[in-house]
Design a protein around this nucleic acid. Structure first.
Length: 746
DNA sequence: TCTCTCACTTC
DNA sequence: TGAAGTGAGAG
């Protein structure tokens, strides 16, 4: 394997950064001190005085390498340098293996999203695919400038309900249809360095939504991984297949990886923005949503007021209907508060529609507010306090909730998971206790499936970073930042030949690739235009890729399998799966040795073994062999880490869905705040809850009686608080253990 | 509800 | 200039 000395060295980092480096930097550096030639630098030379001038550990790797490389051209023998007394042993290089990052994600055009969300966002899906509007855009910060990241987005079911628009409001109309194959959209610029990502708004406007199951714009790339995010048959594609009249939640993922092949072993930082929740429709149901789209989408300018007669006619009809509705509402409720009627009309979105939330001040509102009668914005501004400035509307963020940060609640997990089955329309009234800014925070879920290797060492630091987020949030009111909920799911190196699906045959060659553990890999031809992330995969994995034309079937066999599995799984999962918020079912269950299908249901068979495997492998996890992602053939170690202190969360009296809980979590008005602060202060780092811990019980998850996961047993805030605090004390105790022990035996 | 065509728009 | 993105509206 060739090795370029310049390539891996990053200022301030050590050579160990290079994944292929056979020896870690300290070894090499000590070789230099002793005048030995590292075996992998056979011709290495140094200038006579170059080494003496070397700066030392810390930011020394780059100078060392630069000079070494430069000296190589001088012909001066490396061994002639003699001992360099002041070349300290380079122990200090070790922690600099990777520059720790602390990503923050801001949702762009948040105010616009809020306006839509308040009315119940609808996204049109068509056979040929329709873009999202508002477009999903985020701005990232806190990334390692030098590291490469892959940014992804997917859309998951928000619940297992089918909706109907009845009497000007969205109502549950039954159980959800079998869900479409999941698709993950990789940002076409991926991979790119953190610096590149941070220098621009990351937009996913090219992602299209479709209801066409035979859509060809996607290709199926089955990820066999038990990764909480990737479990099941995830696909990639430029179009996401959705069911009409179903509610969805976009997710944004940041993955520190320079190749898609590394995704399964990389940490996923997942961000949910509750205000981006929407219902997929084939035709608009709500005139107000239509109006918002027309007023804000450039492509719909032709339908604006300034346009032609058709537009005028339509608008008059709309206004007329609005007046009728308004009048009717006045008669019914004795109020003309339009926004409240909207709140009621979209109760299924009400979790983030706190009437106290400030969302006015956007330039868009001016356009979308009819001049006649009481506009939405007017009505809202009457209720809402502390309106944000117009400028803020242009580049909105999710992190302007200073009050919430001061009230970080440790009650995250219990309430996040204390969801009503099925995500019935939420009682907007519960939001009364939420912070006014509750919906300004995204929920962050970090999960990873990876071999316990060098990256393992990042975990404690990341947790620490999570903690520091909360501290930072408290310390820097006004600064745009957030302290997200961090649910980090680690799955140690997966098993190979004896994977979770031993019955599913795959080529021996594939068996040697942990990546393909248990599943074939399908790619649709001509889909590598997705971006650089695929280039190396296409080049290196070519023989391993099975092409599925899809021309005759319209959908890959894998998709069909996935759907069949999903259908079966749904039938088996029943209410149990539904008791968890859909957003977290996959993460939570998978991390606890149970896997959710990508459709939000429990897999009846393949993943059940995971819990046992996890338990059996816990002791082995510390082995260096087992840490190697490509050597570990027999460990599947789901691990779940919660960092409940890292996000300020309120405690909703009840929550039916994560979509309900998340915005509430971000707020902080609960009585737990003081306790949370105390607990947070007592815990130097975020709490880790391992899959092998008390909380990770398959039975506890499967049954609805799990202490922290069952909404049925802890519907009351007090109960949840008590339980959570108990959990916190428990995990605080765990936290006191050395990081190493935690990493070694998660 | 869904699909298709249309007129209109942006890029 | 044309491809592609819009909602309206008919069927």
């Amino acid at each position: 394997m060739s090795f370029s000395m310049r390539d891996p060295v990053i200022p301030g980092t050590s050579m160990a950064y290079h994944p292929f480096l056979p020896h870690r930097a300290p070894d090499f550096a000590m070789s230099a001190v002793l005048g030995h030639q590292p075996p992998f630098f056979p011709a290495l030379t140094l200038p006579p005085n170059g080494a003496a001038a070397l700066p030392l550990p810390g930011a020394l790797a780059k100078p060392i390498m630069d000079q070494l490389v430069g000296a190589a051209e001088t012909g001066i023998p490396f061994s002639s340098l003699g001992p360099q007394a002041h070349l300290r042993p380079l122990k200090t290089m070790e922690p600099e293996e990777e520059v720790e990052d602390d990503p923050k994600v801001h949702l762009e055009a948040k105010e616009l999203w809020d306006q839509f969300h308040k009315r119940g966002t609808e996204m049109v899906i068509t056979k040929s695919g329709r873009r999202m509007f508002p477009p999903f855009k985020v701005r990232c910060s806190g990334l390692d400038k030098k590291a490469k990241y892959i940014l992804l987005m997917d859309i998951i079911a928000a619940d297992d309900c089918r909706y109907k628009f009845h009497n000007s409001r969205w109502m549950v109309a039954g159980k959800a249809d079998p869900e479409m194959p999941k698709r993950m959209y990789i940002h076409p610029d991926s991979p790119a360095t953190g610096e590149q990502w941070m220098s621009k708004v990351v937009t996913f406007h090219k992602l299209k939504l479709t209801n066409n199951i035979s859509d060809k714009h996607g290709f199926t790339l089955a990820f066999p991984s038990d990764h909480a995010t990737w479990q099941g048959n995830y696909s990639f594609g430029t179009q996401t297949i959705l069911n009409s009249m179903h509610k969805y939640q976009p997710r944004f993922h940041i993955v520190r990886a320079n190749d898609i092949l590394k995704l399964p072993y990389s940490t996923f930082r997942t961000y949910l923005f509750p205000e981006t929740e929407f219902i997929a429709v084939t035709a608009y149901q709500n005139d107000k949503i239509t109006q918002l789209k027309i007023d804000n989408n450039p492509f719909a300018k032709g339908f604006r007021d300034t346009g032609n007669g058709r537009r005028e006619k339509r608008k008059q009809l709309t206004l007329q209907s609005m007046r009728v509705f308004d009048d009717r509402h006045k008669k019914e409720n004795g109020t003309s508060d339009e926004s409240s009627s909207e709140q009621a009309a979209f109760s299924c979105f009400a979790q983030s529609s706190s009437p106290a939330v400030s969302t006015v001040g956007t330039s868009n509102l001016k356009d979308l507010c009819p001049s006649e009668g009481e506009s939405d914005a007017e009505a809202e501004s009457k209720e809402e306090h502390a309106p944000e400035g117009c400028d803020a509307a242009k580049i909105s963020t999710t992190t302007s909730e200073e009050p919430s940060r001061d009230k970080g609640s440790p009650a995250v997990k219990a309430h996040v998971f204390a969801a009503e089955p099925g995500g019935r329309p939420r009682d907007s009234g519960r939001m009364d206790k939420a912070s006014p800014d509750s919906r300004h925070s995204p929920a962050t879920i970090s999960s990873s499936t990876r071999g316990l290797g060098a990256e393992e060492r990042r975990s404690p630091g990341r947790e620490g970073a999570a903690t520091s987020k909360a501290e930072e949030a408290r310390a820097l009111p006004g600064k745009e930042s957030f302290a997200p909920l961090t649910v980090q799911t680690d799955v140690a190196a997966a098993h190979l030949g004896q994977g979770p699906l031993p019955g599913l045959g795959f080529a021996p060659g594939l068996a040697g690739q942990q990546f393909f553990n248990g599943h074939p890999l399908f790619l649709h031809p001509g889909q590598f235009a997705m971006g650089g992330a695929f280039s190396s995969m296409a080049a290196g994995m070519g023989p391993l890729l099975a092409t599925v034309s899809g021309a005759s079937t319209g959908v890959s066999g894998l998709d069909s399998t996935a759907m069949a599995s999903a259908a079966a799984a749904q039938g088996l999962s029943g209410a149990t799966a539904a008791t968890l918020p859909f957003h977290l079912q996959q993460h939570v269950l998978a991390s606890q040795g149970l896997a959710m299908s990508p459709f939000g249901s429990l897999f009846p068979y393949p993943y059940t073994y995971m819990a046992a495997a996890a338990a059996a492998s816990s002791a082995a996890a510390s082995s260096s062999v087992h840490r190697h992602p490509f050597l570990n053939l027999n460990t599947m170690r789901p691990r779940l880490r919660y960092s409940p202190y890292s996000i300020p969360l309120p405690v909703p009296d009840s929550s039916s869905l994560l979509t309900t809980a998340l915005p509430s979590m971000a707020a902080a008005a609960g009585p737990l705040d003081a306790k949370a602060a105390a607990l947070a202060a007592a815990s130097p780092a975020s709490v880790a809850v391992d899959s092998g811990s008390e909380l990770n019980s398959r039975s506890s998850t499967l049954s609805s009686s799990s202490v922290s996961l069952s909404p049925k047993l802890c519907p009351e805030k007090e109960a949840a608080t008590s339980e959570l605090q108990s959990i916190q004390r428990l995990v605080s105790g765990l936290e006191a253990k050395p990081d190493r022990s935690r990493s070694a035996s998660p």
